[in-house]
């Protein structure tokens, strides 16, 4: 199921955090754009985590832009979840899918 989204963001650009933007696009699927200070080693793992988080929340037609400053993976997950919730205009997450 796909839901209607608005542009939203979460996080900061500070060290050990991630800045996540969610932008609706005229295309199917989930597009991920990552820029990370640890791209070399963790780039693929971060992308996988972002995709997994977004898929679990069943969003479609979005571009997720992540500026990662070496955040731990649960931080990335939390930032992506928050950004998506804001994009959906929802205050409470559906805890069962998280």
């Amino acid at each position: 199921m796909s839901k209607k989204l608005e542009t939203a963001h979460a996080g900061t650009l500070e060290s050990s955090d991630a800045f996540v933007r969610v932008i609706p696009v005229d295309a199917k699927g989930i597009e991920i754009e990552l820029e990370s200070s640890v791209e070399e080693i963790y780039g693929d793992a971060i992308r996988a985590r972002v995709l997994e988080t977004a898929t679990a929340m069943s969003v479609e037609g979005v571009k997720i832009i992540v500026q990662d400053k070496g955040a731990l993976d649960y931080v990335i997950k939390a930032r992506v979840q928050t950004a998506i919730l804001r994009a959906l205009g929802e205050a409470e997450p559906d805890w069962s899918v998280l």
Binding site: T7, A8, H9, T12, L13, E14, S15, F19, R21, I23, K69
Partner: peptide, 20 residues
């Protein structure tokens, strides 16, 4: 450090104003 904190705040303000 400070540059990134500043940009976080500045982007927050811009996004709040609906300028993405």
């Amino acid at each position: 450090g400070l540059a990134l904190s500043l940009m976080s705040e500045l982007l927050k303000v811009a996004f709040r104003e609906g300028r993405h």
